[in-house]
Each structure stands twice: as structure tokens, then as C-alpha cells.
Amino acid sequence: MEQQRKRLRMLIYSGMFAAVTAVFAQIEIPLPVVPISGQTLAVGITAVILGSRYGAAAMAVYAGLGAAGLPVFAEAKGGLHILAGPTGGYIIGFIAAAFATGWILEKTAFTFRWALAANIAGMLITLLFGTVWLKIVLNVPWDKAMAIGVWPFIAVGLIKAALASWIGVEARRRLVQARLLANERSAA
């Protein structure tokens, strides 16, 4: 019974963090093809707090809500056409990034140093997914895809990785202290 309650609580948290990601998506700096948004900050915070499985679940819920047409993506957009468009690879990459970030922390420790390393890895995974998809959708050479989909995001991505690490570790510590989150390596 206790295990079912923990699982239900984590699923509720996953839904809540999908909503947080939708809110953060509306914070953006417009660029010609792919805007800089708060989504990746939310992905990092989510993964640090919820861990691999539930962090990835939160991002899958987020992507699913957007695919279903709810206006949760940047610029309050939604629909399958967004996933099929230039930014779709990044959104799908959020799922893999959240899983990898949480997994690294579950295998090491939920400290700022490890969270920073894990969030940088997550950022690189998001950029990989996004750039590959961008190359396919726009039918551009790799150097052009990198110029559009990677280089403008590195410096801001490192700042967001540091912020997500600090906020995530502190929030996770407080949730554990309040007994709202299990104090386990795995957030499951």
C-alpha cells in the first residue's frame, strides 16, 4: 500500500512538472528558427527533483499534451505539426535528456556538482536530438544545422544547467526534509 502511495505521489509530481514546463516554455527569447526558451531549464529542474523515470515521464506528458494540441509549447503553440517542425527534435529530446540527467544523479549523488554535470549532459542530448531533427526537417548541411541549432544555445544552456542544478538540488533537499519526496538515490 505504501509503495502504491509513493508511486501515485510521483506520478502526480510528474504531471505537475509537465505543467511547470509548459509555463517555462512561455519565457523565451525569439530567434529566427529555434527560440531560446525556459523549457530546458524546467527539464533540468524536473530531472534533478524527480529522477530518471519520473522526470522522463513528466517530459513525455508535456510532449503528449502539446502533440494533442494543447498550447504548452513555446509561444503557446501545440499540435503534431510542432513536433514535425524544426523544434520537434528538441521537444522529443527533453524526454531523453530528463532520463539521462536523472539517471546520472541516481548513480552518483544529488549534489550541485553532479547535478551540473548531469544537466550539461542533458543539454547536449537535447541539442543532439534537436540538431539531427533540424537537419532532416530543413534539409540543410550539418554545418548549417549546427549554426542554427547548437551554437546559439551553448552559453545560455550552460547558464540554465547551473540554475537548474542549484534550484533542483535545493528544492529536492527541501522536499525530502518535508517528507514529500523519498530520500533514495532513485527518486522512485
Rank of each mutant, 00 (worst) to 15 (best):
G51Q: 06
G38M: 05
V61W: 13
W114Y: 15
V43S: 02
G89H: 01
A117I: 15
A58T: 06
V72S: 02
G102I: 05
A67D: 07
G44D: 06
W103K: 14
I92C: 10
P71H: 03
S52V: 08
G51F: 10
T87V: 04
Q39L: 15
A63W: 13
T101D: 06
G64S: 08
A74V: 00
T111E: 10
F112K: 14
T108M: 05
I49N: 13
L116V: 15
G122W: 06
M59Q: 14
G93H: 01
Y54Q: 13
A121E: 04
I120W: 03
E75K: 15
T108Q: 08
P86M: 05
L116S: 07
G44S: 11
A118R: 02
R53W: 15
A109C: 09
I45F: 07
T87D: 04
L124I: 12
G102N: 03
Y90A: 09
G79N: 05
G44V: 08
T87I: 03
G55E: 05
G85W: 01
F99E: 08
G38F: 00
G102S: 04
A84M: 13
A121D: 07
A98Y: 05
A115L: 00
G51N: 08
G69T: 09
L105P: 06
I91M: 04
I49V: 15
T111Q: 09
A63Q: 06
W103Q: 14
G66F: 07
A98K: 03
G89P: 00
L70H: 02
G122M: 00
A76F: 13
I45D: 09
W103F: 15
F73L: 09
A67Y: 13
F99I: 06
F73S: 03
T87F: 10
P86F: 13
F99N: 10
V61E: 12
Y90K: 02
R53I: 14
V61N: 12
G66M: 07
G38A: 02
G79R: 03
I49R: 08
A67V: 07
G85F: 06
V48N: 12
A100M: 13
M123S: 12
G38V: 01
R53E: 14
T101M: 05
G89I: 01
T87C: 05
V43D: 03
G66N: 01
G51D: 09
G55W: 03
G102T: 07
F110P: 03
I95E: 04
L80Y: 08
K77M: 14
A118Y: 09
G66K: 01
I92L: 15
